[in-house]
Design a binder for these strands. Sequence first.
DNA 1: TCAACTTTGAGCAACGTACGTCAAAAATAG
DNA 2: CTATTTTTGACGTACGTTGCTCAAAGTTGA
Lengths: 342, 342
Amino acid sequence: MIRPTIHDVARTAGVSLSTVDRVLNGRPGVRSSTLARVAEAMRELGYERDIAAANLSKQRIYRFSFIIPEGPNTFMRGLQSEIEGFSAEAARNRVEIRVETVPPFDGAALVSRLEALNPAEVDGVAVVATDDARVADAFARAVRRGIQVITLVSDLPASDRRYFVGVDNVVAGRTAAGLLGRFCRDRPGRIAVVAGSMVVRDHAERRLGFEQVMRGEFSRLEVHPTIEGRDDADIVARELGSVLERHPDVVGIYSLGAGNRGIIRAVSAVTPDIRPAIVVHELTPHTREALLSGLFDAAINQNAAREVRSAVRILRALIDGAAIDRSQENIGVEIFLRDNLP
Amino acid sequence: MIRPTIHDVARTAGVSLSTVDRVLNGRPGVRSSTLARVAEAMRELGYERDIAAANLSKQRIYRFSFIIPEGPNTFMRGLQSEIEGFSAEAARNRVEIRVETVPPFDGAALVSRLEALNPAEVDGVAVVATDDARVADAFARAVRRGIQVITLVSDLPASDRRYFVGVDNVVAGRTAAGLLGRFCRDRPGRIAVVAGSMVVRDHAERRLGFEQVMRGEFSRLEVHPTIEGRDDADIVARELGSVLERHPDVVGIYSLGAGNRGIIRAVSAVTPDIRPAIVVHELTPHTREALLSGLFDAAINQNAAREVRSAVRILRALIDGAAIDRSQENIGVEIFLRDNLP
DNA sequence: TCAACTTTGAGCAACGTACGTCAAAAATAG
DNA sequence: CTATTTTTGACGTACGTTGCTCAAAGTTGA
């Protein structure tokens, strides 16, 4: 039951500690027959490196950097504060975390920030990716310099990033449709969709998933052409307001981007009894309040705190060459009603 | 930025390592003025014990036991396999996990199992509690013997248990009502509630929450008297079938216990078009399949894997006297549609 | 002031690993 | 069979902490 150590491995392999160490750390000067004997002993004993002891000995510090968009986006600011909050806890475990912000939707800015990463100062980086081929190139160069790169929240699948921590936005869109479709099952009518901008990959994916399910399962509901609110409350309020006015048969609203304050304003004008069902994204102070007041029906959320912890665990695992428990790291699409708010 | 060690503390306090160690581990033989100096130095430097190093040195192994009900309950068996799966990972971190099963709903059996816990063999225990004053007494005695006790899944608030890991079942019931109420908003009618047995605390709490919200928010829906299915698929199928036959106005079903296979059988008989909306508890292979086939609309779930990890983290923190990050440990009420199944 | 006592310091081994150096042993080439 | 190279072992130091011993200070009471 007690864990075997390198001493045990050395004894059963009939070699010295040094040799085991050479094998373990891939240092040269071991005959292949000896190597096989040591490997066999490890397998036999089920030896596993004690990472705590190894780190203590190596005085290893994991230095990670999070690169996220700057600007007023509530979700990103929440993410940032989660990262900053976690860094204190992380410091206790030899993990040093930096947060850097870059202009949003600006591939070039992200690229130059990535280029500036010095492998002597940073072991790994978690990036909220901008969908841009130059960014993928910069990932490749960072990886070549020996920096582990993972994407966070927003993925860039066609790149050398080693992992993606975040939700599947197609799934998120499908989930929103599953909810809204059921909320409006006996009230055929029109569904308004409010997005930020379709050039943002996340939003496009959410709409895709939403329309898949709406068309497939709830074809009695008609999806109105997407309103592009540019994540700006004023624009959202104006555009949505005008749609609501022109189409009294709007029975549901799906807000898949930011600018939820605009939704609140536009919908507050509607008589409560005939108010459409509303599903939005991200749990923020505003959406939380709207859920509590009954204005919104549900919020689709991704748990930023969990994403941050997961990103750090994964970066560590990548550096240690350890296995990743995908089921643990899976960030689910969360649904919140007023009743199960955390 | 780099963490201070006892060496640093000793130097700034102007004492030796031994003295710092004596202070740190509460050993006698330190003048109170010296103690104050050392404490001051620690505060000044922000010293925090390196738990990994301390454990390495102490050769400390955390020995935890999980006591859960035996029997066919799908959730409990899933919980057990999560615990067993996690114990391999835990072993790598000096945590040894045992699972013990006891007859369900049997306070006396649980008590005798608790009495058998030897503080020389077990540091902490996580118990799926049975609501029984004798169990609370047994908790108190275990605590007095120096064993940390927390409750898991099912709480016993009026006891000395140090923490509860699990969901708030009143919240779970409210959430189910929030969903079902919205699913049936435009289809006034009757809601059938299927429970296991009302003597189980969890079920009673869920029904309480469900009725709170139904009455408060969805008063146009009539909640039919609870069907007690004793978590038995046959009984559930028969009882629910008879209710559906006698009351064609059943527009929604809330299943708050086990026996979901009985629900499936009873509802499969109903014409798909007029099938009621169905919300159930716990994501199991059966409920998952029913969600995918469209028979069930939503499942309320508690994440067993997360509960197990949380329980272990909390037991460790209690033993180390470390702080508990309640926001991290909060196990939320999860909602799954077919669209966001993990 | 001296004995008795308390407090403090210095040192060591240990935990499991990492990573050096140096010398001895073994294998290989010529 | 030597000379050379490769492989191996022995050992030391380090990481931050624990927990022990022993001796040297310091403090107190009579």
